[in-house]
Design a protein around this nucleic acid. Structure first.
Lengths: 114, 114
DNA sequence: TCAACAGTTCCGAATTTCTGAACTATGGAA
DNA sequence: TTCCATAGTTCAGAAATTCGGAACTGTTGA
């Protein structure tokens, strides 16, 4: 198992963030993680919006979000807990994540974006 | 030659906009078009940032930007003039384009974004 | 009618994405 | 320890997408 990659704030790339959030399924995952009261485990995320996401696909989605710098994953025993890095991203690219979630109709006030 | 497709404001999709702007080459093209004093023709856009973009690739990039609703293309005689639809997009998704261009280090004040 | 020009479409090669199957890592029970 | 269950990752082949040279379309002017 390779170690997880979490880019430093100064290494965040707009193109990676935009690409990660150009997929509605990843946006749903990210919004869930950024939302309040989510455990952010893959199990909790595998059935968003009615479709069951295969776990290999979900793992790839998480990797894309992680390597874009949007979420941070930490192993806790057998499970992985994911939480958003909105505040760090917002420091680097002010208003970006909030504007994107807003465009998708995911009000930033339900998350910690912005 | 198929007619050009320009989605109506109410049909704009965030995922298409994010995808279109997740490629730095397309961002450079879009910023050039959104910038002041650009003719917006393909010829004027084929040599941005030092690399010569093959014209078939450029045509595809323009199509992606057009169908995302970010630019509008109009035939004028033999050439195509492209101009940005920032103001329309901003009405639908306030602050989105400005935040994205800002993240790429393309100050919105040099364009008509936002 | 012809040539030049601006851009589009075609199509094969290269790259990327998707997902079932196999695998790794951790924790708990016996 | 050994075995099993759980959570997620990695592999690998199929499907889809992207890239770009060549051929093409449509317009203008000679």
């Amino acid at each position: 198992m390779r170690p997880l990659i979490h880019p430093a704030v100064e290494d965040l790339k707009p193109e990676a963030i935009l690409y990660a959030l150009s997929d509605p399924e990843r946006v749903a995952i990210f919004a869930q993680i950024a939302g309040v009261g989510s455990t952010g485990t893959c199990t909790a995320l595998s059935n968003l919006g009615g479709r069951v996401i295969p776990k290999s696909s979900l793992s790839q989605h998480m990797k894309v979000l992680r390597e874009a710098g949007l979420i941070r994953g930490e192993r806790h025993g057998v499970e992985m807990r994911n939480h958003s890095r909105c505040q760090e991203v917002d420091k680097r690219f002010p208003g970006l994540v909030a504007a994107i979630l807003g465009a998708y109709g995911r009000p930033p006030e339900e998350t910690n974006a912005g």
